[in-house]
Design a protein around this nucleic acid. Sequence first.
DNA 1: GCCCTCCTTCCGCTGAGTGGAAGCGTAGCG
DNA 2: CGCTACGCTTCCACTCAGCGGAAGGAGGGC
Lengths: 253, 253
Amino acid sequence: MSLTDRSLDVLATFTPDHPTRTLQEISRESGLPLTTTHRIVTDLVAWGALERTRSGRIQVGLRLWRVASLAPRGLGLREVALPYMEDLFVATGENVQLAVREQCEAVFVERLTGRRSVTVLTRVGDHFALHATGVGLVLLAHAPDEILQEVLSRPLRTWTDHTISDPDQLRAVLAEVRRTGVAVSDRQVTDDAVSVACPIRDAHGDVVAALSLVVRHGSVSPASLIPALRAASRGISRALGAPTPDFRQAETA
Amino acid sequence: MSLTDRSLDVLATFTPDHPTRTLQEISRESGLPLTTTHRIVTDLVAWGALERTRSGRIQVGLRLWRVASLAPRGLGLREVALPYMEDLFVATGENVQLAVREQCEAVFVERLTGRRSVTVLTRVGDHFALHATGVGLVLLAHAPDEILQEVLSRPLRTWTDHTISDPDQLRAVLAEVRRTGVAVSDRQVTDDAVSVACPIRDAHGDVVAALSLVVRHGSVSPASLIPALRAASRGISRALGAPTPDFRQAETA
DNA sequence: GCCCTCCTTCCGCTGAGTGGAAGCGTAGCG
DNA sequence: CGCTACGCTTCCACTCAGCGGAAGGAGGGC
């Protein structure tokens, strides 16, 4: 294993539940000897990828965040999408989420949360299974076949009684998402939330992200959200250079 | 130079002006031989810290962004501050900025931009000189002495005729910022923008960030923005566990 | 004062990492 | 179609950066 891999594995020991760690914790989590961990952490701190807190704990440093903020699929996408997400947020007052796919998971790049909106579990930077969320279903529907195969190589995790767990049902849902251009996740993650999602395409026409609205079950018809959601996702797609599909027909595969 | 340093220096070659690069560009920017660069990039891509685009160019990867998003001084601070920034934004309709200090520069962690607001130069993740911006003046006023000494060890850069360039003037301004708890940057960065900034404190009472409003020169009195700005910065400070200062007197050093 | 936990430093050893050269692939131009 | 330029990938003899257990120091709690 190269030293670059080891350094990155040190960085990967931080999680939303453990944004700060001791040297010993990092050593245990990464599987590296204490001395090796100490040396790597010292280098990362000197560069600014990690920082030490007043009490000696270790946390991800601002310099790493600044470098990572240049990720086109992270803040780069967010910057393009934000005006449209704000429009959607103002128009609906509901949670708006933007996600991209990383391997077999949806990663949330941005979200706008209303004060009175239904609570959503995910934060910016978090990831979630593809098969259960609106954005995840969109991303999976347009992913290469091997991604679906990998998702289906393990039992589908469930969070509620509504979570899709049958592979055949998932395949059927994905076909429908490709046909209609819209995914609906009805109480698959929590018992009170429904999300509606649309694809965002790039200049090649590839689906590179998904946009969704998340509302309280029963508060509003998901179908009524589709026009505004579609308008926003098309706007973002255009901003990314996507060719404009024929406006007269629903989005098709 | 350690391999960790080299790998980080590869990552550091990406800039807002060059979010994607070729292998040769990275080699030139980092000063590393092509073979060494190739090996390091291959490792970084395999891990997810970098990604290759369709055309073979290299960009910062989503996995690095996810790790970096755990930086408490980055998105961690942003998450705490966002509701107060939104309140301030709704109340004033002006640009709201949140910045932290990294060595001798202000790094912008979040900003809310109004459609009709004056244009601000900085994006999330960007940095700017401390002495010229509202947030920078606040951060510098409360920085260790050696930071001010380092800032003053080089001529102060100017952007407009109003930019502070005299060290004695800067020291006087910083003393006033400490006394009043507010910094005003009047047309120091662009000829049409004025910013007003306040400190944000942590549980130890240390200044860890600054919050500002940026308005069009002449559009509104900076003094009229201070109450709302103070309220928001105090709210964020409280959320970070800061002790509550006596409400009857202006914030003092 | 003792114990526990965490962190830092030492140092002989070795294989991971080095980088110039050569070769391959692709695009553009005449 | 052939040539040129640019970018990328692989080879391989060499070397020193990185290895990690042990020992010791620091700090907190009882």
